[in-house]
């Protein structure tokens, strides 16, 4: 039932746990690490992480479902996270979301059938001076307009 992590991954997990006096404290960074390897956190990964950190699996699920950055289903290769908070909407951020929806043919929270893009509407990303902004995976893109969004998508090919 349990997923077996590679020796390298286990080693990196142990490096993380060494930073804290309790193994549970490593949970968020370890989940980030595992998700970056596997793309998403299924029950298999949750159980494996739980077992490595000495936690009941439910404690892992509680955490995974609390934080928006952890995902329990696969995401597209490019995760487009468009800010919908106030500063971005004052700069007509809704236009960016509408543009992406039309261009990709998916709604917010959906993934394109080819698995390339997932579109998510998110809260403030902390880049309000560049509103409207979005993140593509972990890269920030600000001062967006539809043309700039098109250029960004071009480069993602």
């Amino acid at each position: 039932m349990n997923r077996e992590f590679t020796a390298d991954l286990k080693k990196r997990i142990e490096e993380i746990t060494a930073r804290y006096p309790s193994r549970q404290a490593a949970l968020l960074p370890v989940l980030h690490l595992v998700q970056s390897e596997t793309g998403f956190l299924s029950a298999e990964e949750e159980r494996a992480v739980a077992s490595i950190l000495g936690l009941p699996p439910i404690k892992v699920r509680e955490v995974v479902t609390f934080y928006t950055m952890f995902t329990r289903k696969p995401l597209g290769r490019f995760h487009l996270q468009v800010c919908s908070n106030l500063s971005c909407s004052l700069a007509d951020g809704e236009r960016i979301l509408r543009h992406l929806q039309a261009k990709l043919g998916i709604g917010a929270g959906e993934t394109t059938p080819d698995g390339k893009y997932t579109l998510t509407e998110v809260e403030c990303l902390g880049a309000c001076e560049q509103a409207p902004c979005m993140m593509v995976n972990f890269d920030y893109h600000g001062n967006l307009d539809p043309e700039k969004v098109d250029r960004i998508l071009e480069e993602l090919k």
Partner: peptide, 9 residues
């Protein structure tokens, strides 16, 4: 995380 805030970045 406070919307509008980006100084610490």
């Amino acid at each position: 995380g406070e919307p509008g805030t980006f100084k610490d970045r």
